[in-house]
Design a protein around this nucleic acid. Structure first.
Lengths: 209, 209
DNA sequence: TGTACATCAGTGAACGCGCGTTCACTGATGTAC
DNA sequence: TGTACATCAGTGAACGCGCGTTCACTGATGTAC
């Protein structure tokens, strides 16, 4: 918590104008949510953390919820970054490489949930709820979804996946990985089941090693 | 929201003593969370709803969080009730009956998430987080977990499940069903994928129809 | 290059509010004799 | 059966607080001439 003290008193801004306050507010809110959970942050505290008066935030966000859902949106990209980085560790065209990338994809999701639990909760909680129409649009554009699609295609191309299950691949893998991650993160399952889930998904999809 | 008006003004209790205030507070909090979400209820409002002063609650709960997690605990039983009822619609010893019960189990979970979204969020959100040790104990005792175990045993007994996957059955089914439910409930996947998930789980487990 | 001025991006005081919790209290209850 | 009294289960006023948001404002900036 000590890291969340307002900065203003420590180093008062030389400039009256901030530069990029919108981004600064999102970043600050992200950091504060990361440490304390979305239910414990206030717009005033975020503004203080940036070193700005509370009312300044209203030049960029209509209200507090807008700021928070701004944070939420931005996190999906960060997750995709992590996933891409994790997959990049296993380049190559072989079936083994494709499999390793698939596991890395799931593991990166799990690691994100585990190490950034408060951010994970925000992304998939009530503050990032979408309605039916937005859901489809958001998902089709989301980089994480595309990574998953491509990873499954890679496996299918190498004959490493039961063709009858290919159409279910994305939703089954995402559901299982997301479900396991959130059940583990909230303490309803022990941590070590995650690798079993990856095993089970592979067996399920008919992956032949 | 109109249903959440305090009752006190409408029908002032004849008795000074309430009878079973602890249960009444849990019930009221449950109903209010059900309608408005856990993030929008206050201890004061719950007390007012019951028709009692805020301080009365402190005879039963050390603080607001204790009341809310009391609500959370009680919900796992209610979910199990629903699941039991859903399974009871398919009695019999046949493989088809066992399969129908398995699907009913998953569907009841999904229906619960869909129709009681705010309660679902409470159960699997931060207010019901458990630590590692509690997790194992709570799960082993939870009726829903036992129902799932038995359902999978039923399938296995009838040779309707790939033996290699049986050890993963509980965690895979729960993870996939929970993941799909929460992704759908929060709008990240469209509603109609749920039946596909059930199909996929059955194919995954190697169920032969 | 210098100046006038519109626009921009902040300030800071104030608003009204509902919250969780504490505290001394009192009316109701039930039990011992 | 009646009474005294300890215990129980509430009341209600008060506390101090931090919140989201509004508002009139002002200092900084940059552009036109």
């Amino acid at each position: 918590m000590s890291a969340l003290k307002p900065l203003r008193s420590l180093k008062p801004r030389a400039n009256y104008h901030h530069g990029n306050l919108e981004k600064a507010l999102i970043d600050a809110a992200t950091e504060m949510i990361r440490e304390s959970g979305v239910e414990h942050i206030s717009l005033r505290a975020v503004a203080a953390y940036v070193g700005v008066s509370p009312s300044a935030a209203y030049h960029y966000f209509p209200d507090k919820d807008a700021l928070i859902s701004g944070v939420g949106q931005s996190l999906f990209d960060k997750l995709a970054d992590r996933q891409e980085a994790a997959m990049a560790a296993y380049p190559g065209e072989s079936r083994e490489a494709a499999l390793a990338r698939f596991r890395a994809l799931g593991r990166a999701y799990f690691d994100w949930g585990n190490t950034e639990t408060n951010l994970f909760r925000l992304m998939f909680g009530v503050f990032c709820s979408l309605d039916q129409k937005d859901a489809l649009a958001a998902r089709d554009e989301s980089r994480a979804w595309i990574l998953l699609q491509r990873s499954l295609d890679d496996l299918a191309d190498r004959g490493a996946i039961n063709p009858a299950l290919r159409p279910y691949g994305e939703i089954l893998a995402w559901s299982a990985v997301h479900g396991a991650t959130s059940l583990i993160v909230e303490g309803h399952l022990p941590k070590d089941v995650f690798e079993s889930i990856l095993d089970a998904i592979e067996i399920s999809l008919g992956v032949v090693k």
